[in-house]
């Protein structure tokens, strides 16, 4: 055997390569079975970025299905509640070019909204309860319903089914609780003159923002 291999080095090399391929193949095959990940991890990561309003504006029944669709090559610009920031985050995650939000699926709204049921007009039909994707509406048949404001994601899916149109979307107003500092206006850094060249009056007369 050894003689034969020594006589035909090509055969020896071939055998060695085949042998190594078999060993590594077996190793990889074992690893694939042993360390198999359940589900689709990329879809999970995408789902983490999506805003979880479960509004269905993307055309999928909830955020998770859209995340799975994105993982399978769907466009990343169909989520209005996530907005430009969401698209940017998805683009970073998937290493694709960010694209502008697809207006077809709705516009990005800046203020978060909460559904509000005008309770004396509610007839207790339970239609909104069935429509709410996160069980944020409380009520029973022929009893008044109400929205649990802290749970509401503002997806407005309950507005459409209401037969008496007693549900409003209330947009959050700016208050002491949600006020925060804004980034300085970038234009303030794009003045055309050199600051030290400015006449004294205008420097002192200008008021701070």
């Amino acid at each position: 055997m050894t003689d034969l291999l020594l006589q035909f080095p090509l055969l020896a090399a071939l055998l060695a390569l085949v042998g190594m391929a078999a060993v590594f193949g077996a190793l990889l095959g074992f690893a694939a079975v042993r360390f198999k990940t359940e589900g689709n991890p990329i879809a999970d990561e995408i789902n983490n970025i999506l805003p979880q309003t479960q509004c269905g504006q993307c055309g999928y029944p909830g955020c998770r299905p859209y995340a799975e669709a994105i993982a399978n090559g769907e466009d990343i610009n169909k989520c209005p509640p996530g907005g430009e920031a969401g698209i940017q985050a998805l683009a970073d995650l998937l290493d694709v070019e960010p694209m502008p939000l697809d207006e077809e699926h709705g516009e990005e709204s800046n203020a978060p909204a909460v559904a509000f049921i005008r309770e004396d007009e509610c007839i207790g039909c339970t239609k909104c309860i069935q429509a709410c994707p996160i069980d944020a509406i409380l009520g029973a048949a022929k009893q008044m319903h109400t929205v649990i404001a802290s749970e509401c994601t503002g997806c407005d899916l309950c507005v459409e089914p209401c037969p008496v149109d007693c549900i409003d979307m209330i947009y959050e107003k700016e208050s002491m609780q949600n006020w925060h500092w804004r980034l300085p206006n970038p234009v303030s850094r794009q003045v055309e003159i050199i600051a030290s060249d400015r006449p004294e009056e205008s420097a002192s007369g200008e008021r701070a923002a």
Binding site: N47, L50, P51, Q52, T53, Q54, G62, C63, R64, P133, I134, D135, A136, E151, T153, H180
Partner: peptide, 21 residues
């Protein structure tokens, strides 16, 4: 802080959505 809050809220809604499903 706002994003953290949002993320917390979205996690919460996701849990609710999943338990509803």
């Amino acid at each position: 802080l706002h994003q953290r809050e949002e993320h917390e809220k979205s996690e919460h809604s996701r849990a609710r959505f999943e338990s509803r499903q």
